[in-house]
Design a protein around this nucleic acid. Structure first.
Lengths: 111, 111
DNA sequence: TTCAGAGTGAACCATGTGGTTCAGTATATT
DNA sequence: AATATACTGAACCACATGGTTCACTCTGAA
């Protein structure tokens, strides 16, 4: 569960605010590469790379329509990332609420 | 909400299976840098870098104990990342189940 | 007081990343 | 048919990343 190439790539894809912006924009409906590039303030070529990254992990789907490329949210609904985070959120909760919480808080107040 | 340096760094920190391993290991209890390095098959210096990355985003807390450095899970409980993912998971759901689903599916059957 | 062990810091290396420009291809529009 | 538009591909750049080695400091133990 931990050693997943897709998980690596998915988290890496999300670790960029330009790409998160793209997901936000596509949440409102499909858009072309140019339409995504303009508000981001980067070149079309640059945006095409971002779209590729998102497409490779399934977060975005694209389709060539005439001379434009229509982009929309993919069907990969962040399930893997959610699953992972949920698992570790529980791990955190268990550690903080459990028997060792006292000891942990005693020694780990620094942050 | 989207433009967050911490969110960038947190997702980036999670985008490495060695670091996710470290979190898993620390979920079972504190460990020193050496104890983390050995199963990972990398040098202590290398692991120290990973620990630093995790510490900088609050996922790990460390404390120098004698000549060792004890590492444990931090108090930053992935809330930011969870919040973001939940928001977008809902966005996905809305898009796929909502009123625009018909239009979307009409034009986006390719996947 | 030595000496071994744990970690740190600096330097280095190969590779990846986010961006650019420029030249090309394919498709609309006139 | 000519031209403008939307994207693609290759080359390039600066910088970040994941890893190393080597020399060093600090601490615990003999």
């Amino acid at each position: 569960m931990v050693h997943s190439e897709l998980l690596d790539s998915t988290f890496a894809a999300l670790a960029d605010s330009t790409r998160r912006d793209v997901l936000a924009r596509l949440g409102a409906g499909p858009a072309t590469v140019s339409e995504l590039a303009e508000p981001a303030g980067i070149t079309v070529t640059g945006m095409a790379k971002h779209v590729r990254v998102l497409e490779e992990v399934g977060l975005v789907t694209t389709e060539k329509v005439g001379r434009t490329r229509q982009c929309r949210l993919g069907t990969e609904r962040l399930d893997d990332a959610m699953l992972w985070l949920n698992f570790y959120q529980r791990l955190w909760d268990r550690r903080l609420d459990g028997l060792d919480a006292y000891f942990t808080l005693q020694k780990g107040q620094d942050q």
